[in-house]
Design a protein around this nucleic acid. Structure first.
Lengths: 202, 202
DNA sequence: CAAAGATAATTGGTCGCCCAATCAAATAAA
DNA sequence: TTTATTTGATTGGGCGACCAATTATCTTTG
């Protein structure tokens, strides 16, 4: 590959994408600089020209993955209907579809979870994502409460519960795609969420 | 350490326990045979006397962790009340307490998740655990339906949803123990589960 | 019952491999 | 010519696996 000017940011992104692909294929413990370089079709040395070390690449990869997730969820939400109920279901559905169709996406994400436990930087990136997600979901819940179709709950805490449900079900969907059907998972998940927010007392 | 007869199974268990402690401390990617040997206070060579290779130790470690989880959940359920509602809440509470008090437990578990994505053997051990858990939860749900306090749902699928909620919330509790309070998490989680199973239509 | 052999358990060192990181040199654009 | 970019070989270290030697316990035998 011949050196060209002004391609630095592109190369960076290329390397990060290659890293994510490698993670999905071989896992975190199977990730080597050599494999990343081959996947990105560049020399090994170049990785250290764009990144300080291996860890820096991993951080960039997690940032990219979380940004992707953000974008997808925002998109799905925009497509959803006007009512709070419809928007919430659209959001849940989008997450389920993501887990089912782009399995690699979740695989990479779960791999990072393990490392987060021992890496503060990674943990912070993840925490920021969850804060954003909770805010987004919380806004929809608040909307529903104002419209009088949801009960009066602490919106951020309710969002945390909803996110937890979606997370848990997505995880199962990722682990055992054969046992769960997307339609079923979506229905059950949406059902659980709506029932949790329903006004009628249990 | 002097060689003694008939201690083989004990040594094995000792090594596995040491492995779990190492995993909790340094993570999956930071796990080395050397560290495990030091933690177990044995020589490095002995690890290969009791296990074929590193992977075999990891498999044994996951089996031990899942067995521990089983035992704890069963214990918590036994302590719970008689009614289906009380038993379900006891189960949820036990999981939450586990996540809060024995954080190391969940840390190790999440680390394994990442590897499971690329290791069939580990995946199978985990799948067996989830099948057992779903059966256990499903039995309680069935009990509640028979007693007429829960709506008529597919018990195993309902169990899957409940397990997903518990999983998701536990995960958040593990990641950010400061932001979540165990009491809150337990209440919200139990609330969500009971509302999901409530007879009144939404 | 004691000596001798067999066996189970343990050690520490060694081997070859592969890894992340480094660097001097090369190449193309400005 | 200078600067930005890229290369591939090198380096030092750490890893999992392997093994010859050693020790303690058990079993057999005289």
């Amino acid at each position: 590959m011949s050196p060209k000017r002004g391609v630095a940011p592109l190369r960076r992104a290329e390397i990060v994408r290659a890293t994510i692909r490698c993670l999905a294929r071989d896992g975190y413990s199977g990730l080597t600089m050599k494999k990343v370089a081959r996947e990105a079709r560049v020399s090994q040395g170049i990785l250290h020209y764009y990144f300080a070390d291996k860890r820096a690449i991993l951080v960039a990869a997690l940032e990219t993955v979380t940004a992707d997730l953000d974008r997808r969820v925002a998109l799905a939400q925009a497509r959803g209907g006007r009512g709070a109920r419809a928007r919430l279901l659209a959001l849940v559905g989008a997450c389920m579809r993501l887990a089912a169709e782009e399995r690699a996406f979740w695989i990479v994400f779960v791999e990072f979870w393990g490392e987060m436990m021992h890496d503060r930087r990674l943990r912070e990136v993840n925490a920021a994502l969850y804060t954003r997600m909770r805010r987004q979901i919380g806004a929809v819940v608040a909307h529903g409460i104002r419209a009088g179709i949801f009960r009066r709950v602490d919106v951020l805490r309710a969002a945390a519960v909803i996110l937890a449900v979606v997370d848990g079900v997505s995880l199962q969907l990722t682990f055992d795609p054969a046992a769960f059907r997307v339609g079923d998972a979506t229905r059950f998940c949406g059902d659980a969420v709506l029932r949790y927010l329903a006004k009628e007392a249990s």
